[in-house]
Design a protein around this nucleic acid. Sequence first.
DNA 1: GTGGTCTAGACCACT
DNA 2: GTGGTCTAGACCACA
Lengths: 129, 129, 129, 129
Amino acid sequence: MFIEIQTNSSVPIYLQLAQQLIEGIARGELKPGDSLPSVRAFAADLGMNMHTVNKAYHYLEEKEFIQIVAKSGVIIQPNGIPKATAEEQQRLAEQIRPLVAEGLVLKLSEEEMVDMVRELVQHIKEGSS
Amino acid sequence: MFIEIQTNSSVPIYLQLAQQLIEGIARGELKPGDSLPSVRAFAADLGMNMHTVNKAYHYLEEKEFIQIVAKSGVIIQPNGIPKATAEEQQRLAEQIRPLVAEGLVLKLSEEEMVDMVRELVQHIKEGSS
Amino acid sequence: MFIEIQTNSSVPIYLQLAQQLIEGIARGELKPGDSLPSVRAFAADLGMNMHTVNKAYHYLEEKEFIQIVAKSGVIIQPNGIPKATAEEQQRLAEQIRPLVAEGLVLKLSEEEMVDMVRELVQHIKEGSS
Amino acid sequence: MFIEIQTNSSVPIYLQLAQQLIEGIARGELKPGDSLPSVRAFAADLGMNMHTVNKAYHYLEEKEFIQIVAKSGVIIQPNGIPKATAEEQQRLAEQIRPLVAEGLVLKLSEEEMVDMVRELVQHIKEGSS
DNA sequence: GTGGTCTAGACCACT
DNA sequence: GTGGTCTAGACCACA
């Protein structure tokens, strides 16, 4: 699992890390029950602050994508991650909404945006950037 | 043009304002050449600070969606907004990517996400939230 | 004498007008003693506010490039414009300075900037933009 | 790095600061990767407001002369600043143009103006005012 | 009356 | 401790 951080991005480092772990799960590279490195080891590995890795883990725990077992380790949700609730879908839609609006202003057609999503799905599943 | 701000959202107020103006443009409610309220009038109207409106305006100016004509007023890009360049599309896709990844983890199918985008397009064009 | 104003420029309109009149003088199109349109006529001609033309004229008067004779008219300095004093040269240099610095940061060589100036001199004398 | 601000100049304070930082880069005193003071520390140092320094930094960031790494600090563009594009050269030329025109009106010869530029280059590189 | 600029002081997210 | 955001209130240049 390669993690690549853009230090000069406006996206916080902890979020970039969390998002890349999410992609790892989406891709099936990280499976239910798999364990993740300890905060300390991961931080050392990635050359970032322990707090930052910790924050990424807690972000994923809040979404129930992982389980943090104190003094033991971190594992991908072992029971599998349940299908999005209507609420979660709604929340996702609200986050995508301003981007779709911007696309429309930039004169992208509905089909072009749909294609963009389809391509993203493929890229994520293949692990290509 | 109704603007609705969530003061307790993690999305900065200036961004929420900018995004809703973008939806207004996408919906065709704000047409090229239309003028926007003065920073002061708008701020008073929305119950926020002048500088916050100013920041939203500058954000939109940077995207070339509006023109700030110094000491005169603010208007929607009068020449029309050009179609997204490949770069802009790429940037949009990168912003949507983590959301698509999250959708996949939440076991949404490609079609479900495509439908989500289609619905968003309709909602934005109709002006419904 | 064609005057072309960019309404969406950050350079104030009165300054753009004044600068173009200065180019007219530099080019020799406006000669000592030539008269300029009245504030009222010029404003109507250019579709701008009287105050704006007035301000441009006063700007040029302060530099002693023109003479405003109350209730009579505006003429190009009839005695000819004297060569820059050391002070005036100094002031010009100070205004050019930050632009030269920016050129250096952008890795332009001294010669490239000198060429830029030579070309500008030619363009101004020919009246090309 | 000495910064000298003229409070009674018509050039905004934030711009004066930015221009002097640009000179620092041009002079090589500020090298790629060097860090700049925090907005607060610099503001206190210079006796100005945090927001004014912030504005100068954002101005330089827009020009891609520096990088603002959120919540971490500000550094001189670490990859080095690329050579001016044709567009950037054009923009610079347009800014210099009215000054050259004024020089011509003040009967400066092409050579005198070229010398002025050459001297400016020397002064900037030496750090003399 | 408009946006531009500046100051002052506050809270927050991130590292 | 850093930059990001927000509020508040002021003066100025421009149209």
